[in-house]
Amino acid sequence: MSTKDHLDVLEAEAIGILRETTAEMAKPVLLYSIGKDSQVLLHLARKAFHPAALPFPLLHVDTTWKFREMIAFRDAFAARHGLQLLVHTNEAAVREGINPIDSSSQKYTTAMKTQALLQALALHGFDAAFGGARRDEEKSRAKERVFSFRDRLGQWEPRRQRPELWNLWNGRVDEGESMRVFPLSNWTELDVWHYVRRESIPVVPLYFAKVRPVVARNGTLIMVDDERLRLRLGERIEARRVRFRTLGCYPLSGALLSDAATVDDVIAEMSASRVSERQGRLIDHDEEGSMESKKREGYF
Protein backbone atom coordinates (compact mmCIF):
# COMPACT_ATOMS: atom_id res chain seq x y z
CA MET A 1 0.00 0.00 0.00
CA SER A 2 1.52 3.25 -1.12
CA THR A 3 1.22 6.47 0.80
CA LYS A 4 0.55 9.99 -0.36
CA ASP A 5 2.03 12.96 1.40
CA HIS A 6 -0.46 15.26 3.06
CA LEU A 7 0.99 18.27 1.23
CA ASP A 8 0.14 16.60 -2.10
CA VAL A 9 -3.41 16.04 -0.89
CA LEU A 10 -3.76 19.62 0.32
CA GLU A 11 -2.30 20.91 -2.92
CA ALA A 12 -4.74 18.91 -5.05
CA GLU A 13 -7.64 20.10 -2.91
CA ALA A 14 -6.63 23.76 -3.19
CA ILE A 15 -6.06 23.61 -6.94
CA GLY A 16 -9.44 21.94 -7.36
CA ILE A 17 -11.06 24.79 -5.41
CA LEU A 18 -9.29 27.46 -7.46
CA ARG A 19 -10.37 25.88 -10.74
CA GLU A 20 -13.93 25.23 -9.64
CA THR A 21 -14.41 28.80 -8.46
CA THR A 22 -13.09 30.15 -11.72
CA ALA A 23 -15.45 27.91 -13.68
CA GLU A 24 -18.54 28.71 -11.63
CA MET A 25 -18.18 32.37 -10.73
CA ALA A 26 -18.49 35.26 -13.16
CA LYS A 27 -15.62 37.44 -11.94
CA PRO A 28 -13.16 36.16 -9.34
CA VAL A 29 -10.21 38.00 -7.85
CA LEU A 30 -7.34 36.84 -5.66
CA LEU A 31 -6.89 38.91 -2.52
CA TYR A 32 -3.17 39.33 -2.26
CA SER A 33 -1.86 40.48 1.09
CA ILE A 34 1.83 39.81 0.26
CA GLY A 35 2.16 37.47 3.26
CA LYS A 36 3.33 33.85 3.17
CA ASP A 37 -0.23 32.53 2.83
CA SER A 38 -0.85 34.80 -0.16
CA GLN A 39 2.38 33.63 -1.74
CA VAL A 40 1.35 30.00 -1.33
CA LEU A 41 -2.14 30.75 -2.66
CA LEU A 42 -0.71 32.56 -5.66
CA HIS A 43 1.71 29.72 -6.33
CA LEU A 44 -1.19 27.25 -6.26
CA ALA A 45 -3.20 29.49 -8.59
CA ARG A 46 -0.35 29.57 -11.10
CA LYS A 47 -0.14 25.77 -10.86
CA ALA A 48 -3.91 25.43 -11.31
CA PHE A 49 -4.00 27.14 -14.69
CA HIS A 50 -0.57 26.34 -16.09
CA PRO A 51 0.27 26.54 -18.97
CA ALA A 52 -2.45 29.19 -19.32
CA ALA A 53 -2.12 32.56 -17.61
CA LEU A 54 -3.94 33.37 -14.37
CA PRO A 55 -7.58 33.92 -15.33
CA PHE A 56 -8.12 36.54 -12.61
CA PRO A 57 -6.32 39.61 -11.28
CA LEU A 58 -4.77 40.12 -7.86
CA LEU A 59 -6.15 42.72 -5.50
CA HIS A 60 -4.08 44.25 -2.77
CA VAL A 61 -5.94 46.32 -0.18
CA ASP A 62 -3.26 48.81 0.73
CA THR A 63 -3.72 50.56 4.05
CA THR A 64 -0.65 52.74 3.26
CA TRP A 65 0.92 51.36 6.46
CA LYS A 66 2.38 48.13 5.15
CA PHE A 67 6.09 47.52 5.61
CA ARG A 68 8.05 49.15 2.79
CA GLU A 69 9.72 45.82 2.09
CA MET A 70 6.30 44.28 1.48
CA ILE A 71 5.37 46.83 -1.15
CA ALA A 72 8.74 46.48 -2.88
CA PHE A 73 8.36 42.69 -2.87
CA ARG A 74 4.81 42.95 -4.22
CA ASP A 75 5.75 45.14 -7.14
CA ALA A 76 8.82 43.15 -8.06
CA PHE A 77 6.97 39.82 -7.87
CA ALA A 78 3.99 41.02 -9.92
CA ALA A 79 6.29 42.49 -12.55
CA ARG A 80 8.48 39.39 -12.81
CA HIS A 81 5.52 37.10 -13.37
CA GLY A 82 3.42 39.48 -15.44
CA LEU A 83 0.55 39.41 -12.95
CA GLN A 84 -2.33 41.82 -13.17
CA LEU A 85 -2.23 43.64 -9.84
CA LEU A 86 -4.96 45.99 -8.62
CA VAL A 87 -4.24 48.14 -5.58
CA HIS A 88 -7.02 49.79 -3.61
CA THR A 89 -6.90 52.21 -0.70
CA ASN A 90 -9.80 53.77 1.20
CA GLU A 91 -8.81 57.30 0.20
CA ALA A 92 -11.65 58.93 2.12
CA ALA A 93 -10.41 57.36 5.34
CA VAL A 94 -6.84 58.45 4.57
CA ARG A 95 -8.10 62.01 4.11
CA GLU A 96 -9.96 61.75 7.41
CA GLY A 97 -6.63 60.98 8.98
CA ILE A 98 -7.49 57.49 10.21
CA ASN A 99 -4.26 55.72 11.04
CA PRO A 100 -3.11 52.75 13.12
CA ILE A 101 -1.25 54.85 15.68
CA ASP A 102 -3.85 57.38 16.81
CA SER A 103 -7.12 55.71 15.80
CA SER A 104 -8.50 52.76 17.78
CA SER A 105 -7.52 49.50 16.17
CA GLN A 106 -11.18 48.68 15.64
CA LYS A 107 -11.88 51.94 13.81
CA TYR A 108 -8.70 51.61 11.79
CA THR A 109 -9.40 48.02 10.74
CA THR A 110 -12.99 48.79 9.79
CA ALA A 111 -12.00 51.76 7.64
CA MET A 112 -8.74 50.70 6.07
CA LYS A 113 -9.31 46.96 5.70
CA THR A 114 -13.00 46.03 5.82
CA GLN A 115 -14.44 49.09 4.11
CA ALA A 116 -11.54 49.30 1.66
CA LEU A 117 -12.05 45.68 0.66
CA LEU A 118 -15.79 46.11 0.18
CA GLN A 119 -15.20 49.27 -1.88
CA ALA A 120 -12.77 47.46 -4.15
CA LEU A 121 -15.00 44.43 -4.64
CA ALA A 122 -17.95 46.68 -5.51
CA LEU A 123 -15.87 48.93 -7.76
CA HIS A 124 -14.75 46.04 -9.95
CA GLY A 125 -17.88 43.92 -9.58
CA PHE A 126 -16.05 40.85 -8.29
CA ASP A 127 -18.41 38.08 -7.23
CA ALA A 128 -15.74 35.82 -5.74
CA ALA A 129 -12.63 36.71 -3.78
CA PHE A 130 -9.96 34.13 -2.94
CA GLY A 131 -8.29 34.56 0.42
CA GLY A 132 -5.40 32.76 2.08
CA ALA A 133 -7.15 32.37 5.45
CA ARG A 134 -6.72 29.05 7.25
CA ARG A 135 -9.01 27.39 9.76
CA ASP A 136 -6.22 26.87 12.29
CA GLU A 137 -5.74 30.63 12.64
CA GLU A 138 -8.62 31.46 14.91
CA LYS A 139 -11.77 30.00 16.48
CA SER A 140 -14.38 31.54 14.21
CA ARG A 141 -12.28 30.69 11.14
CA ALA A 142 -12.40 27.07 12.28
CA LYS A 143 -16.12 27.16 11.57
CA GLU A 144 -16.04 28.93 8.25
CA ARG A 145 -16.83 27.20 4.99
CA VAL A 146 -14.44 26.98 2.05
CA PHE A 147 -17.08 28.85 0.02
CA SER A 148 -18.18 31.53 2.47
CA PHE A 149 -21.31 33.34 1.38
CA ARG A 150 -21.54 37.14 1.82
CA ASP A 151 -24.72 39.13 1.42
CA ARG A 152 -25.08 42.38 -0.51
CA LEU A 153 -23.38 44.26 2.31
CA GLY A 154 -20.47 41.82 2.35
CA GLN A 155 -21.54 40.41 5.69
CA TRP A 156 -20.99 36.88 7.00
CA GLU A 157 -23.81 35.15 8.87
CA PRO A 158 -22.22 32.30 10.82
CA ARG A 159 -25.54 30.75 11.80
CA ARG A 160 -26.77 30.46 8.24
CA GLN A 161 -23.86 28.89 6.43
CA ARG A 162 -24.61 26.59 3.52
CA PRO A 163 -23.90 22.93 4.24
CA GLU A 164 -20.71 22.02 2.40
CA LEU A 165 -20.22 18.41 1.42
CA TRP A 166 -17.44 16.56 -0.35
CA ASN A 167 -15.80 18.89 -2.85
CA LEU A 168 -19.13 19.90 -4.35
CA TRP A 169 -18.90 23.64 -3.84
CA ASN A 170 -22.03 25.72 -4.25
CA GLY A 171 -21.04 29.12 -5.60
CA ARG A 172 -24.53 30.29 -6.60
CA VAL A 173 -25.08 33.95 -5.76
CA ASP A 174 -27.53 36.62 -6.83
CA GLU A 175 -26.58 40.04 -8.14
CA GLY A 176 -24.54 41.94 -5.59
CA GLU A 177 -23.90 38.92 -3.37
CA SER A 178 -20.51 37.28 -3.33
CA MET A 179 -18.34 34.42 -2.15
CA ARG A 180 -15.14 34.50 -0.20
CA VAL A 181 -13.26 31.38 -1.14
CA PHE A 182 -10.52 29.88 1.04
CA PRO A 183 -8.47 27.23 -0.77
CA LEU A 184 -6.04 26.96 2.19
CA SER A 185 -8.80 26.20 4.71
CA ASN A 186 -7.28 22.88 5.74
CA TRP A 187 -3.67 24.02 5.83
CA THR A 188 -1.90 24.78 9.08
CA GLU A 189 0.79 27.38 9.57
CA LEU A 190 3.40 24.64 9.55
CA ASP A 191 1.96 23.13 6.35
CA VAL A 192 2.41 26.53 4.71
CA TRP A 193 6.08 26.69 5.70
CA HIS A 194 6.77 23.09 4.69
CA TYR A 195 5.19 23.89 1.33
CA VAL A 196 7.18 27.13 0.98
CA ARG A 197 10.31 25.04 1.46
CA ARG A 198 9.27 22.19 -0.82
CA GLU A 199 8.25 24.50 -3.67
CA SER A 200 10.95 27.16 -3.10
CA ILE A 201 8.29 29.87 -2.93
CA PRO A 202 9.73 33.35 -2.42
CA VAL A 203 8.43 35.21 0.64
CA VAL A 204 9.05 38.70 2.01
CA PRO A 205 12.44 38.76 3.81
CA LEU A 206 10.75 40.18 6.93
CA TYR A 207 9.89 36.57 7.84
CA PHE A 208 13.59 35.92 8.44
CA ALA A 209 15.69 37.17 11.32
CA LYS A 210 17.83 40.23 10.77
CA VAL A 211 18.92 43.16 12.89
CA ARG A 212 16.15 45.74 12.59
CA PRO A 213 15.25 49.00 14.36
CA VAL A 214 12.50 48.29 16.88
CA VAL A 215 10.82 50.00 19.78
CA ALA A 216 9.22 48.28 22.77
CA ARG A 217 5.60 49.38 23.06
CA ASN A 218 2.71 47.83 25.05
CA GLY A 219 4.69 44.67 25.58
CA THR A 220 5.40 44.19 21.91
CA LEU A 221 8.35 44.99 19.66
CA ILE A 222 7.31 47.35 16.87
CA MET A 223 9.60 47.93 13.92
CA VAL A 224 10.28 51.56 13.09
CA ASP A 225 9.70 51.31 9.36
CA ASP A 226 9.41 55.02 8.66
CA GLU A 227 9.20 58.43 10.34
CA ARG A 228 5.44 58.19 10.90
CA LEU A 229 6.01 56.04 13.98
CA ARG A 230 6.66 58.86 16.47
CA LEU A 231 8.50 57.86 19.59
CA ARG A 232 6.70 58.37 22.86
CA LEU A 233 8.29 59.63 26.04
CA GLY A 234 10.86 57.18 27.32
CA GLU A 235 10.86 55.06 24.16
CA ARG A 236 14.03 54.53 22.24
CA ILE A 237 14.91 52.73 19.06
CA GLU A 238 16.96 49.59 19.57
CA ALA A 239 18.68 47.41 17.02
CA ARG A 240 17.44 43.88 17.68
CA ARG A 241 17.64 40.65 15.75
CA VAL A 242 13.99 40.03 14.94
CA ARG A 243 11.63 38.51 12.46
CA PHE A 244 7.87 38.50 11.90
CA ARG A 245 5.56 35.52 12.11
CA THR A 246 2.71 37.39 10.43
CA LEU A 247 2.88 40.55 8.34
CA GLY A 248 0.43 43.39 8.13
CA CYS A 249 0.55 47.07 8.97
CA TYR A 250 3.90 47.66 10.58
CA PRO A 251 2.64 49.56 13.65
CA LEU A 252 0.32 46.61 14.38
CA SER A 253 2.76 43.76 13.74
CA GLY A 254 4.71 42.45 16.70
CA ALA A 255 8.27 41.34 15.99
CA LEU A 256 9.84 38.25 17.54
CA LEU A 257 13.37 38.04 18.84
CA SER A 258 14.75 35.28 16.69
CA ASP A 259 17.80 33.86 14.97
CA ALA A 260 15.80 32.00 12.34
CA ALA A 261 17.32 33.28 9.11
CA THR A 262 16.20 30.58 6.67
CA VAL A 263 13.04 28.63 5.92
CA ASP A 264 14.55 25.61 7.68
CA ASP A 265 15.29 27.72 10.75
CA VAL A 266 11.76 29.07 10.74
CA ILE A 267 10.28 25.58 10.54
CA ALA A 268 12.51 24.38 13.37
CA GLU A 269 11.63 27.39 15.48
CA MET A 270 7.96 27.03 14.82
CA SER A 271 7.89 23.31 15.55
CA ALA A 272 9.08 24.18 19.02
CA SER A 273 6.79 27.18 19.35
CA ARG A 274 4.31 27.32 22.15
CA VAL A 275 2.63 30.56 21.06
CA SER A 276 -0.09 30.93 18.43
CA GLU A 277 0.34 32.93 15.28
CA ARG A 278 -2.25 35.53 16.15
CA GLN A 279 -0.40 36.48 19.31
CA GLY A 280 1.60 38.97 17.24
CA ARG A 281 -1.45 40.46 15.55
CA LEU A 282 -2.56 43.33 17.66
CA ILE A 283 -5.97 43.79 16.06
CA ASP A 284 -7.28 40.38 17.14
CA HIS A 285 -6.99 41.04 20.84
CA ASP A 286 -9.58 43.78 21.13
CA GLU A 287 -12.27 41.59 22.65
CA GLU A 288 -13.31 37.98 22.80
CA GLY A 289 -14.88 37.04 19.49
CA SER A 290 -13.38 40.09 17.80
CA MET A 291 -12.53 38.19 14.64
CA GLU A 292 -16.08 36.89 14.44
CA SER A 293 -17.47 40.42 14.78
CA LYS A 294 -15.11 41.79 12.17
CA LYS A 295 -15.96 38.99 9.75
CA ARG A 296 -19.66 39.58 10.18
CA GLU A 297 -19.06 43.11 8.95
CA GLY A 298 -17.21 41.95 5.89
CA TYR A 299 -13.60 41.61 7.02
CA PHE A 300 -11.63 38.80 5.57
Partner: peptide, 10 residues
Protein backbone atom coordinates in the same frame (compact mmCIF):
# COMPACT_ATOMS: atom_id res chain seq x y z
CA UNK B 1 7.44 41.47 25.13
CA UNK B 2 7.15 38.39 22.95
CA UNK B 3 9.47 35.63 23.91
CA UNK B 4 11.14 33.83 21.02
CA UNK B 5 9.27 30.53 21.11
CA UNK B 6 10.31 28.81 24.33
CA UNK B 7 10.50 25.04 24.05
CA UNK B 8 7.35 23.07 24.79
CA UNK B 9 6.86 22.16 28.41
CA UNK B 10 4.83 19.06 27.67
Amino acid sequence: MNAPFPLGAH
